[in-house]
Nucleic acid binder design. Structure first.
Lengths: 174, 174
DNA sequence: TGTTCTAGTTCTATTTTAGGACCACTCAAG
DNA sequence: CTTGAGTGGTCCTAAAATAGAACTAGAACA
């Protein structure tokens, strides 16, 4: 009831995605995983996250198929956490966040980490949205197409038409 | 102390970005704003969010320069919330989330909203990471380059070297 | 064998969230 | 100009999530 709202069954892919990775720590864990972090202790130390939180997050991400556990690559008996194919699919989300952060959240002089091509060390290009034929599209040139009666939030979104001169609802019904 | 950890001053753009939009509702509000939602009541109805939460989120997003208020476009005395330039910069983050959600969170038969080019109604292409010369890059071909001593989490990440044979710390100090 | 690491689990205090009640202001009709 | 409904909030409470510390079992090490 007062439980955190779930978006798992929303009709909007953005909402569903946020249901999986929309909390405070998940994307940071995933970012670190992209950077090669694998062990519980590495995540914990790198993020400064409480161990309990981290254990919960790693379990959830594993259950949801973002991470999987594997025997430690150094031969010890410990486990490590690595991204699944599904998890690696989040790369562009992390990149988009990174590029936005770089552009809008730093003073020009401030130091920051940057994403570069491994081979050359050259910074990567900014992401661009394109049409299938390769034309670059701006936000204004796109729209979201809703299939019939699909909810984008946890509650069903009522059709716009309803808003015009709604008949007075009974106050008693509350 | 037990307050939610802040990442505002982290050295990693991803962490800073998540500090701004990394909570449960912010990106959904922003997504709706991209879809043309402007009024308090529209957000509230569409998202099914508690009014108190929404008021807080809208205030925070406004303070952080993602949204701004404007007089209502219908001539009434009410305000409306519109994305700033900085806010519109989040478009690709939303698109990346959407594409990931579409690819990994839906059964093939399930209905979902899709992003299309407004003019033609044709679905947009998948985002791709490219080098500046236009070559498409995969995750494995990139790396994150850290400037000297930059923290990526809330706590300072200690340099790797430290981990090798750390001197035993006093247990008493706890 | 005993000490230290690693990777957790458990506990508690505090904060955040969800949701409802309440309230002030706006708008439109009579 | 009054009234009733709509809009955009604030405030309150209960439940859940978070942070952080304490504790623990098994692995590694000396």
């Amino acid at each position: 009831m007062v439980k955190r709202t779930s978006l798992q069954t929303a009709g909007c892919p953005v909402a569903r995605a946020l249901d999986v990775i929309g909390d405070w720590w998940s994307l940071l864990i995933i970012r670190d995983a992209f950077d090669g972090v694998r062990r519980f202790g590495e995540f914990q130390e790198g993020l400064g996250i409480a161990k309990g939180m981290l254990a919960t997050r790693l379990r959830d991400l594993t259950e949801r198929g973002i991470l999987e556990t594997a025997p430690a690559s150094d031969g010890s008996a410990y486990r490590e956490y690595v991204l699944t194919e599904k998890g690696r699919g989040l790369f562009l989300v992390v990149v988009a966040l990174r590029q936005w952060g770089e552009a809008h959240l730093y003073k020009p002089t401030e130091q920051r980490s940057t994403l570069v091509e491994a081979k050359s060390g050259a910074a990567v290009a900014r992401l661009e949205l394109r049409a299938k034929d390769g034309r670059v599209l701006s936000w204004a040139e796109t729209k979201v197409q809703q299939p019939a009666a699909v909810s984008c939030g946890p509650k069903l979104r009522r059709p716009k038409a309803q808003r015009v001169r709604a008949p007075a609802r009974s106050r008693v019904a509350r």
